[in-house]
């Protein structure tokens, strides 16, 4: 992926915002945090995959046609 930060950044954000959640016992929260981090990472991977599916589609011809026409009118204009 082009210059994308590793998914670890997402997990860091999770931790950062954990304080907003109701507090639980320290032994529970450590395990829960690991689990939540893992799940958030997994969702992050999926989310990028979903977006990249469209990014990786070939560009439909009309996009390039429109640009080519615009280019011509710019030359003539």
């Amino acid at each position: 992926m082009k210059g994308r930060s590793p998914p670890v950044r997402n997990a860091g954000d999770m931790i950062e915002h954990q304080s907003e959640l109701p507090s639980v016992g320290p032994e529970i929260s450590a395990a829960a945090l690991d689990e939540a981090r893992l799940r958030q990472q997994a969702i992050g991977v999926r989310l990028r995959q979903m977006f990249d599916e469209v990014v990786n589609e070939p560009i439909p011809d009309d996009f390039l046609d429109i640009l080519r026409r615009a280019d011509k009118s710019a030359e003539q204009g």
Partner: peptide
């Protein structure tokens, strides 16, 4: 133009 062509796939994905 050369740069915007490289952005078309990303614009399509965001629009989707």
């Amino acid at each position: 133009k050369a740069e915007i062509v490289t952005l078309i796939p990303h614009l399509r994905a965001f629009a989707r």
